[in-house]
Design a protein around this nucleic acid. Structure first.
Length: 563
RNA sequence: UGGGAUGUAGCCAAAUGGUAAGGCAUCGCCCUUUGGAGGCGACAUGCGAAGGUUCGAAUCCUUCCAUCCCAGCCA
């Protein structure tokens, strides 16, 4: 039985904090985290980092982790997104058990806390327009000025807030604001808005509410209500922490979760911003959120990445407070490492060149050879592959005038056809344009299986597909979606869209071993010497799979050839 | 030019006053019926800079520099 390998996660500053808390018996030595996505888009690899962190901490410290949708802005949120988020978290291998929550579950309680805030004299109903609020807020270097509505009586505030809730006022005409400090150097503390009026239909609460609480107010209280001990978020919320703490300090609450911020993930050649990903989808630069070129979890899934590879990636990149950009090669390493051990091998010729073996008998049928399914795993067994007089080999595996270290086919050179025979190139046939269209070779019948009884060595082994028994299948060859390391850097007047790679998708017909036509959706293969491929989950038909290139194989010949 | 953070190799990232882990990438060599995989080796007299404290500093102190975030009724 093969155990799921749980890599020992490296230490990080958050674990150091938790270790310290545990030593001091803080939170009764409980560890309770949460993953709090807003359902306004699909999850991407950056969220995967956060999911692995939060659920990983829960698991490692014998604690628990909630899934909570931060759904306080109905105009941006949708059930399509909540469904996809749950699917993605599950697929990554994490389980929130019975702890699926929504911030909207707490709207009643949040409303009561707002009343408490008013009664404490710490919140007021403000009637400034958004523009006025902005002007009164001051700037980074100048303090703000108090709103003229700041000193209403508690009774008046209670009345007005109740009427806001009852829908008596149009959108945007009034807000509930916390009364904190208009001259704070931290702009978040300059009387932040706590509730706004939005007569919008909410995906869960329907039309029950027309006032919705803001993030800062909602998040800390939701954490508190769930008994979260460590509330982990990204760096941009660092400035919000004083506000997070303020609500919890001022209100009567049984516990006070600790907000800890870490740096969000960046990867070169990719864009990880929900806004930009949404734009790519809406403006049809890609074919949906799960387009295999997208850095979304669903995109990686469809591309052929595995949950284990993504978890491994999250472990390798670490967790810190320093902004950083991870090299894409780390991701590729993780998926290759996983697939190398698990993917079945097969042969596929991406760019075919016809080879006729002139001394192969015309009437020889059922020349059946054995191929190893996975050299990394003997239990994967072997398969039968039919050989024939005419085959296809990779066009790149032939050079008419090869350089010194080219170990493949060339006039007069002998190579091994994987699992089959040694062949020697005798003649090169060209069309009227001088294009090579066929090779005439001879084979050595004694080298059947790939070894010659006289012990002679060949330098190269190439893959092939029988022209008689092979089939064709659609391959989708993916490249990076962006051409530049940081797609966000664009000249004046240009945007990240101008940095897109026009060749990020190439669709070709390849010759494949016949058994590949029976591939099921999501089946993963290594096409030997080519790369890892996965049967597409959407466009494959029974008997007619479409293969997505997950990642190419490392290609050290390409490096030599470049020199 | 207010406030909050961060600087360790090409890219990530450990170190908690005791003499710079590890991974990716790169470069050698070995092995190989995948130019894959695997194995072995190389890769920071140096921790943003300059001063200082100390027997001893990436870690402590001072000053400086660079980068990121914040002025939504978004999260």
């Amino acid at each position: 039985m093969s155990e799921i390998k749980e890599t020992v996660v490296a230490n990080n500053f958050i674990k150091n904090i938790i270790d310290e808390d545990l030593k001091n018996n803080k939170n009764d030595s409980r560890v309770h985290t949460r993953f709090p996505p807003e359902p306004n888009g699909y999850l991407h690899i950056g969220h995967a980092k956060s999911i692995c962190l939060n659920f990983g901490l829960g698991k490692e410290y014998n604690g628990i982790t909630n899934l909570r949708f931060d759904d306080t802005n109905p105009v941006k949120e949708d059930v399509e997104y909540v469904d996809s988020i749950m699917e993605d978290v599950k697929w990554l291998g994490f389980d929130w058990e019975d702890r699926l929550f929504y911030a909207s579950d707490y709207f009643d309680k949040l409303y009561d806390f707002a009343i408490e805030l008013i009664n404490l004299g710490l919140a007021y109903v403000c009637e400034q327009t958004p523009e006025e609020i902005r002007q009164f807020r001051g700037t980074l270097t100048e303090p703000g000025k108090p709103s003229p509505y700041r000193d209403r009586t508690i009774a008046e505030n209670l009345d007005l807030f109740g009427r806001m809730k009852n829908g008596e006022f149009p959108d945007g005409t009034k807000t509930l604001r916390a009364k904190i400090d208009m001259s704070s150097p931290n702009i978040n503390m300059r009387d932040p808005v706590v509730y706004r009026i939005k007569k919008a239909h909410h995906h869960r609460t329907g039309d029950k509410w027309c006032i919705y609480p803001m993030y800062d107010y909602t998040h800390c209280l939701s954490d508190m209500l769930e008994g979260i001990t460590h509330s982990i978020c990204t760096l941009e919320f660092e400035d919000h922490r004083p506000l997070y703490d303020w609500f919890l300090d001022v209100l009567k609450t049984p516990c006070h979760p600790q907000q800890i911020e870490f740096a969000r993930l960046n990867i070169n050649y990719t864009v990880l911003s929900k806004r930009k990903l949404l734009q790519l989808v809406q403006e049809n630069f890609v074919n949906g959120w799960d387009d295999p070129r997208m850095p979304t979890i669903s995109g990686f899934r469809r591309r052929g990445y595995t949950p284990a590879a993504i978890r491994d990636f999250a472990d390798r990149i670490g967790v810190t407070k320093g902004e950083s950009t991870v090299d894409y090669s780390v991701l590729e390493f993780c998926i290759r490492e996983d697939l190398n051990k698990t993917a079945l091998r097969a042969m596929a010729v991406v760019n075919p060149l016809k080879v006729t073996i002139e001394n192969y008998p015309d009437d020889l049928k059922d020349d059946i050879l054995d191929g190893v399914n996975n050299p990394e795993n003997p239990e994967a067994g072997t398969r039968k592959i039919k050989f024939s007089k005419v085959i296809y080999v990779e066009r790149d595996d032939f050079m008419e005038d090869p350089p010194k270290k080219f170990f493949r086919l060339a006039p007069g050179k002998e190579v091994r056809l994987r699992y089959a025979y040694f062949i020697t190139c005798k003649e090169v046939i060209k069309d009227e344009n001088g294009e090579v269209i066929e090779l005439i070779c001879t084979y050595d019948p004694a080298s059947r299986g790939g070894n010659s009884p006289d012990g002679r060595k060949v330098q190269g082994t190439i893959h092939w597909v029988s022209a008689e028994y092979g089939k064709t299948a659609e391959l989708r060859l993916y490249e990076n979606l962006f051409l530049t390391e940081n797609p966000d850097i664009a000249p004046e007047g240009k945007t990240f869209l101008d940095n897109m790679n026009p060749d990020s998708l190439k669709v070709i017909q390849a010759w494949v071993e016949p058994s590949l036509l029976e591939a099921k959706t999501n089946d993963k293969f290594q096409f030997e010497r080519v790369g890892y491929f996965c049967a597409d989950s959407k466009d494959s038909q029974p008997g007619a799979p479409v293969f997505n290139r997950t990642v190419g194989l490392r290609d050290s010949w390409a490096k030599i050839a470049k020199k």
